[in-house]
Amino acid sequence: IDAAQIVDEALEQGITLFVVNNRLQYETSRDSIPTELLNKWKQHKQELIDFLNQLD
């Protein structure tokens, strides 16, 4: 699994991931984030931050 897949998966569930001051953040209108997704974010945090920083 790679960062792009995780970002896409989040988007499919209505969650936008982004980076502020090198910290992973998210925006969503959902009430809660699925635990499975949160765990993936934690496991791949640095990859996600690097990936999202490249997009900007």
Rank of each mutant, 00 (worst) to 15 (best):
Q43E: 13
R23P: 01
A4T: 05
D8T: 15
L38W: 10
L55T: 12
T35Q: 15
D8L: 15
L55P: 09
L17Q: 00
E27T: 15
A4Y: 07
F51V: 03
A4L: 07
N53F: 07
I49S: 02
D50K: 09
L52P: 00
F51S: 01
T16E: 07
Q13R: 07
V19K: 01
Q5W: 10
L37Y: 06
S29P: 06
Q5R: 12
Q25R: 12
D56Q: 14
D50E: 11
Q13N: 14
D56E: 12
L52Y: 02
L11W: 10
T35V: 13
K45G: 10
Q46I: 08
I49V: 09
L17M: 06
Y26C: 06
V7D: 00
D2Y: 12
R23T: 15
I33Q: 01
I1C: 09
D31V: 07
G14R: 05
H44T: 04
A4V: 05
F51G: 00
K40H: 06
T16L: 13
I6Q: 02
V19C: 05
D2S: 14
R23C: 14
L17W: 02
Q5A: 13
T35P: 13
E36M: 08
N39P: 02
E12W: 07
K45N: 15
I6A: 04
A4R: 12
T35Y: 10
A3M: 15
R30P: 03
Y26D: 00
E9V: 04
D50L: 11
S29N: 12
E27P: 01
Q5H: 08
Y26Q: 02
K40T: 09
S32G: 08
T16W: 11
L55S: 11
N22V: 03
F51L: 04
D50V: 08
I15K: 00
F18Q: 10
L52D: 00
V20E: 12
K42G: 08
I6S: 01
I49A: 02
E12N: 12
W41R: 00
Q43S: 10
K45D: 11
G14P: 00
R23F: 12
N39S: 08
T28Q: 03
V20N: 09
E36V: 10
Q25H: 15
W41D: 00
A3K: 02
W41N: 00
F51P: 00
L48D: 00
A3S: 05
I1V: 12
D31F: 05
T35F: 12
A10Y: 03
L37A: 02
Q5Y: 08
E12S: 14
E9N: 05
Q43C: 05
N39M: 12
T16C: 13
R23N: 15
F51I: 03
L55Y: 09
G14N: 05
K42E: 15
S29C: 07
H44A: 07
V20G: 05
G14D: 04
I6T: 04
E36Q: 09
N22K: 05
Q5T: 10
R23H: 14
V20K: 14
L37H: 02
V7M: 05
A3P: 14
I49G: 01
S32Y: 13
I15L: 02
A10W: 02
T28Y: 05
S32Q: 12
N53G: 09
L52Q: 01
D56K: 07
D8S: 15
Q43N: 11
G14V: 02
N53R: 11
N53Q: 10
E9T: 04
D31Y: 05
I15M: 03
Y26H: 04
Q54V: 09
L48P: 00
R23Q: 15
D2I: 14
L52H: 01
T16Y: 14
I15E: 00
V19H: 02
Q43M: 12
V20M: 10
A4H: 08
E27V: 13
I15C: 03
L55F: 08
Y26M: 06
Q25C: 14
P34H: 04
E47Q: 11
D50P: 03
K42P: 02
R30Q: 06
T35M: 13
Q13I: 07
F18M: 11
T28A: 05
K42H: 14
T28E: 03
K42Q: 14
Y26F: 09
N21W: 05
E12R: 15
D8W: 15
A10G: 03
K42V: 12
Q43I: 12
W41V: 12
V7A: 03
L11Q: 09
E12G: 12
A3D: 01
R30I: 08
E12L: 10
I33K: 01
D31L: 07
I1Q: 13
Q5C: 05
P34K: 03
I6L: 13
W41L: 13
D50T: 10
D2F: 12
T35W: 11
V7L: 08
N53I: 14
Q25T: 09
S32A: 10
V19D: 01
D2E: 10
D31H: 06
Q43P: 03
